[in-house]
């Protein structure tokens, strides 16, 4: 139960829009429960769990590729269900960030999330995604530039507004 917010948050970081988050998170939870016997207490449990969730999400995205990006324009609803234990500022900030991430390519997005949100190193990401080291660096570089630009665009808009 305690892990659920983390699972849902990671899924949302990795996928565009909110529509599929619950389904993927449910699948990830099941994968976690099924995978528990294989967990060896060598690292942090959360790190293991994060990777299981990320892999489940990538597998889901791969399966859904044929269905197209039908959820890209899903309406954003900042406060869907009130919660007394949520910090409004933090929540709004994260929601804003993820809407910026929604505008990046999946490749750049995944590299950024794995690096900045999960704090994986470039070699670790390279292994996780099965792509060359240099490709990871390139995606990170391009993703950072794009995200900064999007963030600045938003700030500029707010200032002008």
């Amino acid at each position: 139960m305690e892990l659920l917010p983390r699972v849902r948050n990671l899924v949302r970081y990795l996928v565009r829009g909110d529509v599929d988050v619950e389904d993927i998170a449910q699948e990830a939870l099941i994968a976690l429960v099924r995978g528990l016997p294989s967990y060896r207490a060598e690292g942090r449990f959360q790190s293991w769990a994060d990777r299981v969730v990320a892999r489940t999400t990538f597998a889901w995205l791969k399966r859904s590729r044929g269905r197209g990006a039908q959820h890209a324009d899903a309406p954003v609803e900042l406060v869907a269900v009130p919660s007394e234990d949520a910090l409004p500022d933090e929540y709004v900030h994260r929601r804003h960030m993820v809407t910026l991430l929604d505008r990046l390519s999946n490749e750049q997005r995944h590299a950024l999330v794995l690096h900045h949100v999960l704090e994986l190193s470039v070699p670790e990401i390279s292994t996780e995604l099965g792509i060359p080291f240099e490709t990871v660096r390139s995606r990170l570089r391009l993703g950072r530039t794009a995200l900064r630009s999007l963030a600045a665009e938003g700030d500029g808009g707010e200032e002008r507004g």
């Binding site: 917010p5 949302r12 998170a25 910090l87 900045h116």
Partner: peptide, 12 residues
């Protein structure tokens, strides 16, 4: 970095 806090997933 990821945590168990609120967001970016919608509240449920």
């Amino acid at each position: 970095p990821l945590d168990e806090g609120a967001g970016p997933a919608r509240r449920i």
